[in-house]
Amino acid sequence: MSAQAETPFPPGALEREAETADTRRRWLLSLPAIAIIVCAAAGPLLVMVIYSFLTPGDYGNVKWEFSLEGWMNTIVQRDIFDDTLIWADAHLSIFWRSFSLSLITTILTLIIGVPTAWFVATQPPGRREFWLFLVTVPFWTNLLVRTIAIQELIRSEGVINLVLLKIGIIDEPLQMMFTDFAIGFGMTYVYLPLMVLPVYAAVDKLDFRLVEAAHDLYASRWTAFRRVILPLIKPGIIAGSILVFVPCLGAYVTPRVLGGGKNLMFGNLIELQFGAGRNWPLGAALSLMLMAAVMVALIFYVRITSREKADG
């Protein structure tokens, strides 16, 4: 041992040794994260990909026979009587409804969330925690419970209708339940905190002296917002929009409770295939399609917003 220790190392060997040890340690530390990603994301995804190429079992599940039927069925369907192929326009219209409702929800959460985040971030430091706490309170209750509470508000005998009837604005209850309005309303409520929090973080980081500088250089309130504040809190807005839009596209509970059986969204359509539809390959294919659509939408969105940034 001692002889070995006395042997001079070639130049740089010690550093290289330390570097490899450092790299090894870093890998070791990221092991839990890698394990979670593999088990919880990559694994199930692989299962979905495999299932989408199999044949549906008679009582759900899959038979291990290769088939393209699952993917075919996402866009066309076989007529039950004469086996001709027709466009699966039901799927397309459901997809379109999901997409437009998600977009509307994102815009609504932006309109409500940005001023809210601004308000919280400009409170004196001691009081900010209190407002942030209020923003996160809905997370303390189960999503289903909150959604049913909304139902209580908007159903025909619900609070809103009762009040409107009492003060005589309407003669008969408004039909709000089981409409797209109900879904949009519910999703805006449910996903609002996901917009408020990242925008709050961005506004909190904003250097308000920059806003003063803008005013000092003759910018009105609106121009200062558009030219200085908006570009600087854009990362928060992008993050918030993604956090709202993506889960909206796949939303399941809210459309189910508030939209009823008629106004399906994509999440419900997928659920249907794994449940009553007993067509797991179709469900898997639809899931993967949704994922692809989300990714395309995100790439598109990030491209547009970052190009604006480059333009200044």
Binding site: R209, L210, E212, A213, H215, D216, L217, Y218, L232, G312
Partner: peptide, 22 residues
């Protein structure tokens, strides 16, 4: 008068340059 209506400009202590502009 609000600052944007005063013909007065300021050089701020930490410059307050707009980081998203050249």
């Amino acid at each position: 008068l609000p600052p944007n209506q005063r013909p007065i400009n300021t050089v701020f202590q930490n410059y307050a340059l707009f980081p998203h502009m050249s």
